[in-house]
């Protein structure tokens, strides 16, 4: 494949069948490898869409610094697109993000402002919203920007339909809700009976513990009505299934991919009792950025405690 620029190579990721991970004979599991994007995650899609949206509306001009709260992937993708397009970029990130994410952001030339790790992504969102009052900054705000949803509606969702129009169910992780809302809308438009199921991380007690209910957060772009189910997954199950992806199918994916595969096991059993068919699992990134957690190399108890110390979602 030949491209005019790295930005033109975003998307059109491979969809690969993983037969050994299907729990039942009449259900085929497929994984869409978003780790194959230029910076190694699905966020390249939305980073480009967010910046082009800002340029088109006139809100993003060359004198602005792009600012965004991120647990890593969106930041890395925005840093790449920003530097390619000649913008400065500042990421607001929890201070317990894995060291690979911090190094990568630095390598792409981003400035980093750290928010308190114990407050999780909510802390980064609050801090970035505060900083964005300064009009030196342009904040695309992935949690509230429809360009995020559109990138998945036009890109990710359409690609899945092109490759597998007979799809019966789609499973992805819940972060901003952009993937589930955008892909979900596109798929349901094609066939309203397609099931859309979210995998949601069960975070450490500390993350939930530090806040009052008033600080709860539902991303404005997330349309909860698009979902047919939402299942929470612990770090332990995510690690087990991330390892299974590597050991049984040779796929080296990030830790939240394991959560998606685990949820797909449940969806597969239900689909099997309903006639079987094809499930697409969206794997948001590759495993590289999680190597320092030793998720693949330690015994499961040690791996679990190491992963819980960093932001794995």
């Amino acid at each position: 494949m030949k491209y005019k620029s790295i930005l033109d190579s975003i998307g059109h990721t491979p969809l690969i069948e993983v037969p050994s991970l299907s729990p039942v004979e009449d259900v085929r599991l497929w994984v869409k490898l978003e780790g194959q994007n230029p910076t190694g995650s699905l966020k390249d899609r939305i980073a480009l869409a967010l910046i082009e949206d800002g340029e088109a509306s006139g809100a993003l001009t060359k004198d602005k610094v792009i600012l965004e709260p991120t647990s890593g992937n969106t930041g890395i993708a925005l840093a790449m697109v920003a530097s390619t397009r000649g913008y400065r970029f500042t990421a607001v990130m929890p201070d317990n993000a894995s060291s690979e994410r911090i190094r990568l952001l630095e390598a792409y030339g981003a400035e980093i402002v750290f928010s308190e790790g114990a407050k999780g992504t909510n802390g980064s969102v609050a801090r970035a919203l505060e900083m964005a009052r300064d009009d030196r900054y342009y904040m695309p705000f992935q949690y509230g920007n429809q360009a995020n949803v559109q990138a998945h509606y036009r890109g990710t969702g359409q690609e899945i339909l092109d490759d597998l129009p007979e799809i019966k169910a789609f499973v992805a992780g819940l972060g901003t809700g952009g993937t589930l809302t955008g892909v979900g809308r596109r798929l349901k438009e094609h066939d309203p009976s397609i099931k859309i199921v979210a995998a949601e991380p069960e975070l450490g007690e500390l993350v939930y513990g530090l806040r009052s209910l008033d600080e709860g957060y539902t991303p404005p772009i997330f349309d909860p009505d698009i979902l047919d189910g939402k299942i929470k997954v612990r770090a332990r199950e995510s690690i087990v299934w991330t390892r299974a992806l590597l050991q049984k199918e040779g796929i080296f994916a990030g830790i939240s991919a394991g959560a998606v595969i685990w949820v797909a096991q449940r969806v597969a059993e239900r689909l099997s009792s309903d006639g079987g068919g094809d499930i697409v699992c969206l794997l948001p990134d590759g495993g590289w950025k999680y190597l320092s957690t030793e998720a693949w190399t330690q015994d499961i108890d040690t791996a679990e405690s190491q992963v819980e110390e960093v932001l794995w979602w």
Binding site: S71, N73, N122, G173, L203, V207, Y208, G216, Y217, K232
Partner: peptide
Amino acid sequence: EDVRYLDGLETRAGEGDTVSLLPSVAGGA
């Protein structure tokens, strides 16, 4: 499993089930 996608407040919990209440948080991204 989130009860909003089951039967909401009408969802039945039987013997041996675990019901968890959690505040909603922003996802990583």
